[in-house]
């Protein structure tokens, strides 16, 4: 919690802070440190996740060739003959380590291979699910933050007040409502009765509204709750009291001291929710026929489509790293506590 005492003159601090000193100590600036750490994490995560997927799929019960044949030809036409043809075609009889080594070698050349079921390139197969999932997650998060954060702040202004209690009811209500049911209710209201929005589909701006609102309703309550607790806690803290004591106006206290500090917590929370949204919204995707990653991954696991499972898992893992990087960097930018300047006695 070290802060730069205002009494120190800038030139007294500078020698210890800027100039060649950091390089001599062999350290990097915080942002570069974050980026370097995350880059290393991205590479190791890719290798670990893809290998783990491969091992898990190999050890799942049932004969892979039959599962792939069921995916390729449908339930009417999967037979032992088609499974045998799949086995010969894909070289599934080769030892597992050879198959894994082949995947690694291809990965080193940025080749994610082809789907065992459709025969299409994995990159092509995953492009639409990845972009659709990101689009849905971004829209849902934006809506949830836009609603939740202001409500949370307003509730924090009078803890225990009417709005605060209403927020608690809203959180409990929305968390208790399963997304599947909420989605159906929204379709019935906005699509069937009012006819304002399309029930399903993908491609136009109006298509994303209902699935995004379904996800955002539950999240907005959580954001309101987290914002409320953070802001209430900050408002009671010593530095806010000090700022008020020294005569800063309410708006300035809110903007400079409360919101900025609350932002650090909120950004981290938004990051965590973004990951959950991208990975785990299979039910909402299937209800609204949204071509997202969750649905693709479930199909691929059902069919034992190893390259697609590996690539989808790697894409998800890299997204985790990327979002965490954004959260870290944004946190650094928001956090008023200096990470570089040091107090020189």
């Amino acid at each position: 919690m070290t802060t730069v005492p205002p009494t120190l003159a800038a030139d007294e601090v500078e020698p210890a802070v800027r100039g060649p000193a950091p390089a001599r100590r062999g350290t990097l600036p915080p942002v570069a440190r974050v980026l370097a750490r995350r880059a290393l994490q991205a590479v190791s995560v890719t290798l670990l996740v893809s290998t783990a997927c491969f091992v898990i799929v190999q050890n799942l019960p049932g004969d892979m060739a039959y599962r792939i044949a069921a995916g390729r030809y449908g339930y009417d036409r999967v037979t032992t003959a088609s499974a045998d043809a799949v086995r010969a075609d894909l070289g599934l009889d080769a030892p597992a380590w050879q198959q894994l080594a082949r995947w690694w070698a291809d990965l080193a050349q940025f080749d994610l291979g082809t789907s065992l079921v459709t025969g299409g390139s994995v990159v092509h197969e995953l492009r639409l699910p990845v972009t659709s999932s990101l689009q849905l997650a971004a829209t849902a998060l934006a809506l949830a933050v836009a609603v939740g954060a202001p409500v949370g702040m307003a509730a924090a202004w009078r803890p225990g007040g009417l709005l605060d209690r209403l927020t608690t009811v809203w959180v409990a209500g929305t968390r208790a409502l399963p997304p599947f049911l909420l989605g159906l209710l929204l379709i019935m209201l906005f699509s069937v009765h009012l006819g304002w929005l399309p029930a399903v589909g993908h491609g136009s701006a109006s298509n994303v509204v209902l699935p995004a609102v379904t996800l955002a309703v539950g999240l907005s309550g959580l954001f309101a709750r987290v914002t409320r607790d953070t802001v209430a806690q900050l408002r009671g803290s010593g530095f806010v009291t000090f700022a008020e004591t020294k005569g800063l106006r309410g708006r300035a206290v809110l903007a400079r001291h409360v919101l900025r500090n609350a932002g650090v917590t909120l950004v981290a929370y938004v990051g965590a929710q973004a990951l959950i949204l991208i990975e785990g919204v299979v039910v909402v995707e299937s209800l609204f026929a949204w071509p997202g990653l969750g649905r693709t991954l479930v199909h691929a696991i059902f069919w034992r489509d190893v390259p697609v499972i590996q690539a989808a898992a790697v894409a998800l893992a890299l997204l985790v790293v990327l979002i965490n990087t954004v959260v870290d960097v944004a946190g650094l930018a928001l956090d008023p506590r200096p990470r570089w300047r040091q107090v020189v006695p």
Binding site: T131, A138, G203
Partner: peptide, 16 residues
Amino acid sequence: LVACSGPPGAAGGRQP
């Protein structure tokens, strides 16, 4: 991130 999540037209073609 936003660019990745941008209009699906880039990947999926035009809207139905």
